[in-house]
Design a protein around this nucleic acid. Sequence first.
DNA 1: CGGACTTTTGAGCCACGTCAAGAGAAGTGG
DNA 2: CCACTTCTCTTGACGTGGCTCAAAAGTCCG
Lengths: 218, 218
Amino acid sequence: MLAQTHSYARSGPPAAAPDQPRDGQPSLIGITRSFGRGQEVFGEGDSADHVYRVVSGAVRVQRVLADGRRQIEEFYLPGDVFGVEFSALRRATAETLGETTLVVARRTTAAADPAQAERLWDHALRELARCHDHVLTLGLRSAAERIATFLVELAARLGGDDEVELPMSRQDIADYLGLTIETVSRTLTQLQTRGLIRLNGCRHIRFARPAALAELCE
Amino acid sequence: MLAQTHSYARSGPPAAAPDQPRDGQPSLIGITRSFGRGQEVFGEGDSADHVYRVVSGAVRVQRVLADGRRQIEEFYLPGDVFGVEFSALRRATAETLGETTLVVARRTTAAADPAQAERLWDHALRELARCHDHVLTLGLRSAAERIATFLVELAARLGGDDEVELPMSRQDIADYLGLTIETVSRTLTQLQTRGLIRLNGCRHIRFARPAALAELCE
DNA sequence: CGGACTTTTGAGCCACGTCAAGAGAAGTGG
DNA sequence: CCACTTCTCTTGACGTGGCTCAAAAGTCCG
């Protein structure tokens, strides 16, 4: 079923391959698979029998209402696990942001291995904490605070030292933060005008005054 | 440590007592403890070594920023489990909404029992799905849609057939939905004026036109 | 160089927030 | 049981942050 909607490896071997992250612990064992830009990994209503780990690239998980409004629930970056759900069916859609490589594993297989099961459990709880943080941002922060929070967290996750290379478009950021694309764009220019950040091309951002930026995140 | 901040049972026996939910499965085994209105169950920064199940009453879990803004992450109603976290320390505060009885268990004890561990896992994933739904509401719904969604979900969780008895104040609803208390109040009267709901006292709401209300939830 | 797409900028508007006051509701003491 | 206090909820008038609509300026590729 997965095979029908996915494009197969173009850069890596499509055969089964054990995956070893840096610390030597198997976070998720499965096949490595490559996707092109904007491809669907799974869709709402699909059966939720696989879990994924991002090797390179990035993924957005989103829901779209009947009237077309879209909310991005989460972005997943290299090292992140996604696709673990309570329900047997997907409640959201996952799409790649650019050229992306994932490790794909059967959920039941991963859950059967104690070491991997432990990792899945940790992952779910960490994801829950991140989701609660997101609720905080959406519930009570202003546009500037949302953008600042987003940039700072993204830089931390990507390991950037006072700079980020955005893997997503303005529209994606807007739909993640509950804003419009215009507000995202305006807020970024305003942060630049205030001297907090510096834009080099629209995807590369340098933190000119990290402390002031952190202050906006409370 | 718990004993220092809690009030002990006034209605039930404070001694250890096995807990058996309706289906006969032990969802959480521990001591039953009663709380008065507005009491703290745990606070931000406390060690997160216990998990809880609501027997009666209700609990809010919230975070407060330095400037006083408050976000309620979730309400917990009879049957709900709360207090499972990734981190060793609490990232939020839990308080009772009224007279409330909880089952308290050590997390390590519950996790050691396979049946309970399975329940904890299910609970965490269900909670994650609910949190993602909350993100959807905060990210892209209008005030009227947020209130409608909130009321419909609350009625479903409390088992009310087209009516709800609100266990929380207007301020709590506002801080849960990312609105102000005035907007919550105005929106409720507006829903009543439109004939969708009927308020009998400010805590009791009857759904006059359930279909129209459901439409607001998409 | 040309075409499609993304981002930025501008002008005006509106949903929701803010500030303020009044109306209930609930607890307290006499 | 009733005054009194206190807290919560409602309503009104007004302000504003972010949305909408529109167009220009980049940016990316073939």
